[in-house]
Simulated assay, not measured.
Amino acid sequence: MTVQDRRASLYDCAEHLKAETLQVWQTMRQQAQSCRDPLSRQLLEATILQHENLPSALCTLLGHKLGNSAISAQNLMDVFADIYHNYAAPLNAAAEDLQAIFERDAACPDLITPFMFFKGFHAMQTYRLAHWLWLKEKRYLALHLQSRGSEVFGVDIHPAARMGCRILLDHATGIVIGETCVVENDVSLLQGVTLGGTGKNMGDRHPKVRRGVLIGAGAKVLGNIVIGEGAKIGAGSIVLESVHAYTTVVGNPARRVGVRNTAMPALTMDQTLPPIDYII
């Protein structure tokens, strides 16, 4: 089957998709069909309504955003279609990311909005495609997508990093995630967050961010350290040591200012802190 055939028959992969993924697409189409403004309707037709399924719409959206003189939008769409045809995991993850954004972001009224306009969502899906290419030893193409994602969305995620599902990159501008990072499910990162190394050390050198962590705007988490499940990192913090689960840290260098029981701050997006007196 040619790449063009795969693009024409993308719905063949539906049997490998979760029911929730198919429901997300149906909800998006219903939301788009309810629009009555003529100019907005034209935009929705091109982005959503003319497509039969989520992979087709996502291929087109990302292809047009990432294409350039080196690799055209059409060629990228063919590459993405080939991936989605054979590999349902990034599609299921994309649907889960959309749902997570809708549930957590107060500025998100529906599923259409992040799909069409939120560069954090676009950057995550670019990473998911680049990661697949990296694992398939197509390293230069993966790095090309990383580079284009950084140029277009202002988000730099190394394709070798391991990212879970239901990830929210809120506003997203300036987020950097290094090569050996691990970010588990249900994590929320705000703009300007760095998950980086501490120098020129080789090997495993980047943070491991466990489930449910919330990292505030501008925070820098550096080194091969662990941010425990349900931890909260205050905005602007510099974190150089591991953080225990369900613990809040703030400051430069970051220090503990509170401990909770089981709350997942990434899900509530609660960035408030206990009464503290700390020095940055």
Rank of each mutant, 00 (worst) to 15 (best):
Cys181Val: 06
Gly218Val: 12
Leu195Glu: 01
Ile225Pro: 03
Val249Ile: 04
Met202Tyr: 08
Gly236Asp: 11
Ile227His: 08
Ser237His: 08
Val183Pro: 00
Gly203Arg: 05
Arg205Lys: 13
Val221His: 06
Glu184His: 12
Glu229Gly: 05
Gly228Asn: 08
Arg260Tyr: 12
Gly218Cys: 06
Met202Asp: 14
Thr248Ser: 08
Ser242Val: 13
Ser237Arg: 02
Glu229Asn: 02
Arg256Tyr: 01
Gly178His: 09
Asn201Lys: 15
Thr247Gly: 08
Arg255Asp: 01
Gly223Ile: 08
Gly236Glu: 12
Val257Gln: 01
Gly218Thr: 10
Glu184Gln: 07
Gly197Trp: 07
Gly216Val: 01
Ser188Met: 15
Gly212Pro: 02
Ile177Cys: 02
Gly236Thr: 04
Val213Trp: 01
Val239Arg: 12
Ile215Ala: 10
Val187Tyr: 07
Ala219Trp: 11
Ala245Ser: 15
Arg260Gly: 05
Asn201Trp: 05
Gly218Gln: 07
Arg260Gln: 13
Pro253Trp: 15
Thr247Cys: 10
Arg210Glu: 12
Gly251Met: 03
Val249Trp: 04
Ile215Leu: 13
Ala245Lys: 15
Pro207Met: 12
Gly216Asp: 04
Leu214Asn: 07
Arg210His: 11
Leu195Lys: 00
Gly199Lys: 03
Arg210Tyr: 11
Ile238Tyr: 03
Ala217Thr: 14
Gly251Asp: 05
Val239Gln: 07
Ile215Thr: 09
Thr198Leu: 12
Lys200Gly: 14
Val243Asn: 02
Pro207Trp: 14
Gly192Tyr: 04
Gly197Thr: 03
Val226Met: 00
Pro207Tyr: 09
Arg255Cys: 12
Leu189Ala: 08
Glu179Phe: 09
Lys220Ile: 14
Gly212Ala: 07
Ala231Leu: 02
Lys208Ser: 09
Ile233Asp: 02
Leu189Asn: 08
Gly199Thr: 13
Glu184Met: 08
Gln191Ala: 12
Thr198Glu: 01
Glu241Tyr: 04
Lys220Ala: 13
Thr247Gln: 04
Gln191Tyr: 05
Val250Ile: 15
Thr180Gln: 05
Gly197Ser: 00
Pro253Tyr: 15
Val183Cys: 01
Gly199Gln: 04
Ile215Val: 15
His206Lys: 06
Pro207Asn: 11
His244Asp: 14
Gly230Ile: 05
Val209Tyr: 11
Leu195Arg: 03
Val243Ser: 03
Ile233Thr: 12
